[in-house]
Amino acid sequence: MRLSRLSRTTLAVVAGLILVIVYVPLGVVLVNSFSTSTSLSWPPPGFTFEWWQRAFQSAGAMEAVGTSVFVAIIATAIALVLGTLISFALQRFDFFGRHTVNLLVILPIALPGIITGIALNNFFRTIMGVPLSIWTVIIAHATFCIVTVFNNVIARLRRTGTKLEEASADLGAGVWTTFRLVTFPQLRSALLAGGLLAFALSFDEIIVTTFTAGSGVTTLPIFILNNMFRPNQAPIVSVIAVVLVLVSIIPIWLAQRLSGDEQQRR
């Protein structure tokens, strides 16, 4: 797009400023992880590596990360399957109630988490009579993760159309073969993007999790919340956050690379 030099620069500066604002609080978190103050007070009274050491010794923290990863992976997997199915249904077919189904997919994310949380809590405990466990968390997470997969996949389906699939079918490939060799490769980056967002959503979810986690199920956000109520633990939480941000670069970068390659190939 032909933007004047001035507007380009202005835009760049504004975008840069916004990013700076985005990163200032993260900087605070980073600094706090080295602070001698246990209550995250500012400015930090002193410098220490103690929290980094203790964070890596904290079995609870490690376990919580493990639990969160486990929950997020399974919830994402379920969301990938259900989200893809539903996007095919809505994109390739016109049927009565199509809009209702569309709304149904969006609802779990559009309604505030606390409502989803108490509704599911009530559902599991009083209607189904199942005790809360890690699986109830996974079911809850998968439910509101469907929408991120759905959106990415349906957008891709709309863009790619059905020509290639028709060609494949015309050439005699069955439904499965066509999906495996034609449709899926086209969807791969959309699935990746949707899956990544679903993973992130599940990984950091606290409100619905609070209401659906059983005894002893400590996801990372719950671990962090509990530690806010414990003496001398707050800086450890900062360490975990810093590590997570750093580690998160890898999957995001990989996803970017994969989808970027795909775009170049086309």
Binding site: L19, V22, Y23, P25, L26, V28, V29, N32, L40, S41, W42, A200, F203, D204, I206, L220, P221, I224, L225, M228, A234, V237, S238, I240, A241, V242, L244, V245, V247, S248, I249, I252, W253, Q256
Partner: peptide
């Protein structure tokens, strides 16, 4: 990447950072 990264620094941690 720069926009996505802060998503991973736990909601609670960010809220407390703003408190600070």
């Amino acid at each position: 990447i720069a926009v996505l990264m802060p998503l991973w620094a736990s909601y609670l941690v960010k809220a407390y950072a703003w408190r600070s």
